[in-house]
Write a protein that binds this DNA or RNA. Structure first.
Lengths: 127, 127
DNA sequence: ATGAAAACGATAATGATTATCATTATTAAG
DNA sequence: CTTAATAATGATAATCATTATCGTTTTCAT
């Protein structure tokens, strides 16, 4: 008996908003912007649906260590860069960094499923 | 006028406890264990002194994305592995993974100061 | 010994997120 | 087109790690 999803205008709007931006917004930012179309939307609804979208694989959580989650509709494998100046989160392709897991598997005998890699510095606007 | 540190038995005990363990304890764990010698110690004292030790470079914060900070008296550059089974945090040397920042600098034109790299999987006991 | 300032313990406050719960919206079946 | 089930909502309380506040205690140079 997996939970049978029902349609929701709020969830639709959330997903298309998330898909329309290149930034990696927080729940709070999405909440503020959804208020344009849904003046009565609740922050709880935003969190609920973000969790749903992540479970469904239509979005992913981006943790850059700034104590709040960011969200990304691009679920393809890639890394992120956090600018210490403007605090923006920027995509970084991971083509050049394949097989990072391998040396850890081999040297320590751990089974490495995934890794998290975040870069910190100044973006081209802030440097 | 930089803050003039004064000696504190609680801070001494915190540092030597942290230096004596290979795990990467949380503030809560350190607090519970310091109670042996300081029954009246406050959790605030533990947090205060952990922040101080980090500022002084005698300890470092380890963020593995589990919503609480871990602490490490080994401030030499190394990575961490989080076991999804026993939730323990294990050191990983970074010898095999030098120059991770470089490709990002070159390709995106960002000034990359640091990066955070955490591995997830099962340790040799849990796999 | 003494006084300024650091550190303390207790505890309230914060901020992001989750849980609760009464009400509303969606949807499949009659 | 009703209706009944159940998912989703909005409002808000609760949670949990961490920080701030504040009156009291320690530390330490004088």
């Amino acid at each position: 008996m997996p939970i049978q999803l029902k349609h929701s205008r709020q969830r639709d709007a959330l997903l298309s908003l998330l898909q329309s931006v290149y930034s990696h917004p927080t729940a709070e930012w999405l909440y503020e912007n959804l208020k344009m179309d849904f003046p009565n939307i609740s922050l709880a609804t935003v969190y609920r649906n973000l969790n749903l979208l992540c479970e469904q694989g239509m979005a992913m959580r981006v943790d850059v260590g700034d104590d709040k989650n960011h969200f990304d509709a691009n679920t393809k494998n890639h890394y992120h860069f956090l600018c210490k100046g403007c605090r923006s989160v920027i995509d970084v392709s991971n083509e050049e960094l394949s097989d990072v897991n391998l040396p850890v598997e081999e040297k320590f005998g751990f089974k490495v499923d995934t890794h998290s890699l975040v870069f910190f510095g100044l973006c081209d606007k802030c440097r």
